[in-house]
Design a protein around this nucleic acid. Structure first.
Lengths: 172, 172
DNA sequence: ATTGGAAAGTCAACACACCTGACGTAATAA
DNA sequence: TTATTACGTCAGGTGTGTTGACTTTCCAAT
């Protein structure tokens, strides 16, 4: 059941977990797991003519209420034209509130409305449920390894974004 | 550095790794890691008017040479119209060879040509390099956990596809 | 031998999410 | 005053996915 993961003596060369085949299995694991991971919210989103981009915007606005458009652009890594289309529909539909920046009035600070919060919760709950089950099944040690490997895969920029939010207040 | 992962006595309730915040971090880890994971091949693909769909087709044809269109459709989980557009360009460009099925002459069996093999290798090498580095950094225990959690996240169908290829010959 | 149906391929039309480039407006900073 | 930044928008394009309708090829059962 458990793959044999073995190391020879320190400095050894036969690191079974670095085999080409093991690496290939890692690649496919990423592919299939990510597909499963996005499938649940995709079903909900499709019903309301939204896509993953809407989900991502809701997620990061929820995580850091009051963040500016530029900050959101930065964390998502897309162009402003692309984000704007998504953001406009979310604002029109009353899920996101765009307020003039407090320090700098050029900036727009983004907040979820009540219904925006509700949809974000509904979408992420499906993913949380999946991850919770997977975490429980795999156990704490595996979860630690899961996060270690994923973090080691990230580029520096992404790792920075990933680590950025530890103890932020919910309302600035 | 290392997140505190703790369990109380068996049957305990304070499973820190199942905290809502820990789950959220898991969600973001998936998002950022997958983005990093696909960014390298995306750069290469963009240069040649290809996309991820082309990469995925090349990958699975490489993994299981001679598989039928239906089998590929099944593993990719897309419609035949969608796959066909991709497959047609790959065949036209001489990267994939489509041969009439041996058992059933209605079927098409798919093979990579030499240049197809070369491109698949070029694309996957970027991912393998990233994963190899991440695996080496995180260590064998973490890699085991990484795979355990990802497998636990998959749907049954995907897990079946994922497990399907262990000791297949390269040429049927 | 004819028929039913599966496998494969094709055409059309559409939606979504990304992109580049160019332009305009408002507000801060030099 | 001028330059820069932040934001929004128009236009045009690509890749990937969808439904629906249709034809051709071919195996298999009647």
């Amino acid at each position: 059941m458990q793959d044999k993961i073995a190391m020879t003596a320190p400095g050894g060369e036969a690191l079974l977990f670095l085999t080409d085949d093991q690496i290939r299995r890692g690649i496919e694991a990423m592919y299939f797991a990510y597909r499963a991971f996005t499938s649940d919210p995709d079903l909900i989103l499709a019903e309301m003519d939204y896509g993953r981009a809407h989900h991502r915007a809701l997620h990061f606005i929820h995580r850091d209420p009051g963040l500016t458009v530029t900050a959101l652009l930065d964390v998502l890594g897309v162009t402003k034209q692309s984000l704007n289309r998504v953001l406009r529909t979310l604002i029109e539909d009353g899920l996101v509130d765009s307020r003039v920046g407090r320090r700098d009035r050029r900036e727009r600070q983004l907040y979820l409305t009540d219904s925006g919060t509700a949809l974000e919760r509904k979408l992420s709950e499906t993913q949380r449920a999946r991850l919770r089950t997977a975490f429980r099944t795999a156990g704490p040690q595996a979860v630690a390894g899961f996060r270690q490997v994923l973090e080691a895969m990230m580029d520096r920029d992404m790792l920075r974004q990933y680590r950025a939010f530890r103890d932020l207040p919910d309302t600035p």
